[in-house]
Nucleic acid binder design. Structure first.
Lengths: 245, 245
DNA sequence: TCAATAGTGTCTATAAGACAATATACC
DNA sequence: GGTATATTGTCTTATAGACACTATTGA
């Protein structure tokens, strides 16, 4: 058929790049922002053997209907979490980021609630396993990751820190019910600086993205528990935390 | 029909998707935000024949070193502009967005100064030409574009309108030297609402991204001309224009 | 002088920062 | 009561909105 011939034509003119999806999964552990890393296999022919990398891999055109679904599949395979906050970060593609050829990756970033995580070792098709770990982001950034994953992680951290200044994103890093002191603590960990208690509470409550949900005791006075009204999208505040320089 | 590759296992296991880059090029004409569209060829076998689409196409792994360079190449081919503001918008990939197979596109959006534009008709390899036009975005959004370009354009317009609330982006839509009344007018066109003159001027001047550059006469009092200090990145304002509902 | 456009001054409103004060829990 | 944590109150500050006012150019 002419149509099919023409399609073949397109494919002959343009060599197809490799296409992958990578996921940057953040959580807060031990007062620090952490990111999930997976060790590259030592198998012959695999690029960057033994190096740490972001979890991800090739799109399976038979299994993945779209990019987001592919990202969710990879996220679930690594953490067991099926519905955390997930947003597209961007794409990186070039002739030299993968020694196997011209490749493009679609990066997504995810925020996983602390304590809701059961790490799963990566199972390879050949029956081997790949080590997985939570690395503090500041360490991970100095680690010389596989591919251009250092650059991608850098962009993810900048995006997260940037958005934390004016959105409710950190709420996705906490299990429910959460308290305002807990939430403030997560903000402070991600931003790397202290925030004023009073201003923080006003801001969160005025934004209206929380609803009351029981009480939580943490050793002193019992705290009000809260739940997110919307688990899909963060709330945008009218101003940034740090107004001026 | 898997293509024979010299590289190992990976490529035998995973069929490669089609990879393209599309560019959303905005400008302001006749008091309205416009976007550049290209008509799809009528050639047999081409998808969406005769429909309007965003300019773009396949990555040429021989010619394009990376995604950004590919976007710049396509931008220059259509408008002749070589260094406008260009940022990545996101990527769209799925099994059904292109009838030729699983495909992923990397979308970039560009802001081109009014008056610096010479439209070039798209020259095909077979010697034919493709019609090109500036369409008002509101019309383009109702047009049923090729592929998922309607959805991509929608995202681009939302991103632009969103960023215009708290960045100096509209300055990239004006040639230099520009005046504050001109800049305010572009803001108003993009946002679709009027802004207060006094507050606008304070905000722009306090942000410090403009430097004086001669004077410009527009029929009444002579206006101060300005130039951008940095043609690469917009300035982010500490607050949004519309603080509250 | 008038029309048209550019630019300024001043008051108010909103929300953030600083920081002191009060409230509730458990021992 | 004492300690630890949660919550509130009040004053100041930064910047946006409203809107009236002044300034400069050309016909």
């Amino acid at each position: 058929m002419a149509r099919i011939q023409k399609h073949v034509g397109v494919e002959l003119r343009f060599e197809r790049p490799l296409v992958t999806v990578d996921v940057i999964i953040f959580t807060v552990l031990d007062e620090q922002l952490h990111v999930l890393l997976v060790q590259r296999p030592e198998t012959r022919g695999e690029p960057f053997p033994g190096r740490w990398a972001l979890p991800g891999g090739f799109i399976d055109v038979g299994q993945d209907r779209d990019l987001l679904q592919c990202a969710r599949r990879k996220l679930k395979a690594k953490t067991g979490v099926s519905s955390p906050y997930l947003e597209q970060l961007g794409s990186w593609g070039s002739a030299d980021r993968d020694p196997r050829g011209w490749s493009a990756t679609h990066a997504y970033f995810a925020l996983a609630p602390i304590g809701h995580l059961e790490l799963r070792v990566e199972s390879q098709e050949d029956g081997t396993f790949l080590p997985t770990m939570w690395a503090p982001v500041d360490e991970a950034l100095g680690m010389s990751l596989a591919f251009d994953h250092g650059e991608i992680l850098q962009a993810a951290v900048e995006r997260l820190r940037g958005k934390v200044e004016y959105t409710s994103l950190p709420a996705f890093l906490l299990p429910e019910p959460m308290t305002l002191p807990q939430l403030q603590h997560v903000y402070e960990v991600v931003l790397g600086r202290a925030l004023d208690k009073s201003a923080f509470r006003r801001r969160m409550l005025d934004a209206g993205f929380l609803e009351e949900a029981g009480t939580v005791s943490m050793g002193g006075r019992v705290a009000q528990g809260f739940r997110l009204r919307d688990r899909r999208e963060p709330t945008v505040f009218p101003r940034s935390f740090k107004a001026a320089e």
